[in-house]
Simulated assay, not measured.
Amino acid sequence: MDEAARAQVHAQMVRFAQGHRDAFEEVYVALWPRLLAFTSGLLQNPSEAEDAAQTALLKVFSRITDFNTRRDGVAWAFGIAAYEVRSLRRQRNRRREASLGTATSTPDSSSDAQEALIAQQLRQALAQTLSYLSEMDREALLAPGADQGSEALPPHMRKRRQRAMERLRSFWRKLYGPP
């Protein structure tokens, strides 16, 4: 979404939050395909992606009076959608855990393959994002002792690692949107 379209959607969300009900349709038309594409990219099951996008859009509309109009409306909507995706994944994992206790058949190998594919795609995305960082930032993130907690690193390395993580998150958001 380019900046002009984003600003237009934000303006319509502000109008809707201020009580202009005629802005509802414009917000819906602008957000629905984008939220659906976002959730489809995060969830492999199209019906789950549609459910997450629909629930997110319902929450956006039901909580529009809580919307802080000085902040980006599109980011707010995508944040709600990301939360819905996370909730759906948690629910799916709970169902999987509950069914494992009573399962008498072998596990579904297609879900294992799907999980492996997702993990591979995440590793590729991380490698691509890491390539945008400087060599110094990559060294800070991959420094020995970095995986053992912040106490294992000297203070100057902790700060370097923190700044490198901020830059990594920034590049990730630019490439893949909000987490």
Rank of each mutant, 00 (worst) to 15 (best):
M1E: 07
D2W: 04
A4L: 10
A4F: 06
A5M: 06
R6A: 10
Q8T: 05
H10V: 00
Q12N: 09
G19N: 04
H20D: 15
E25H: 11
E25M: 08
V29Y: 10
A30K: 05
W32E: 14
G41I: 11
L42W: 12
N45G: 02
P46A: 03
S47M: 02
E48Y: 07
E48N: 03
A49F: 02
A56P: 02
L58P: 00
L58W: 03
S62I: 06
S62E: 15
D72R: 05
W76A: 06
A77Q: 03
A77T: 03
A82R: 11
Y83H: 11
R86C: 07
S87F: 11
R89F: 00
R90S: 04
R90V: 09
R96N: 08
E97F: 07
T104L: 07
S105N: 11
S109M: 06
S109C: 00
S109I: 08
S111A: 13
A113D: 15
I118T: 12
Q121A: 13
Q124S: 10
S131W: 03
L133P: 01
S134E: 13
M136H: 10
D137G: 02
E139N: 09
A140Y: 05
L141Q: 06
Q148A: 14
S150E: 11
L153A: 11
P154A: 14
K159S: 11
R160Y: 00
Q162H: 14
R163L: 15
A164Y: 01
A164W: 01
R167N: 15
S170R: 10
W172C: 05
Y176R: 02
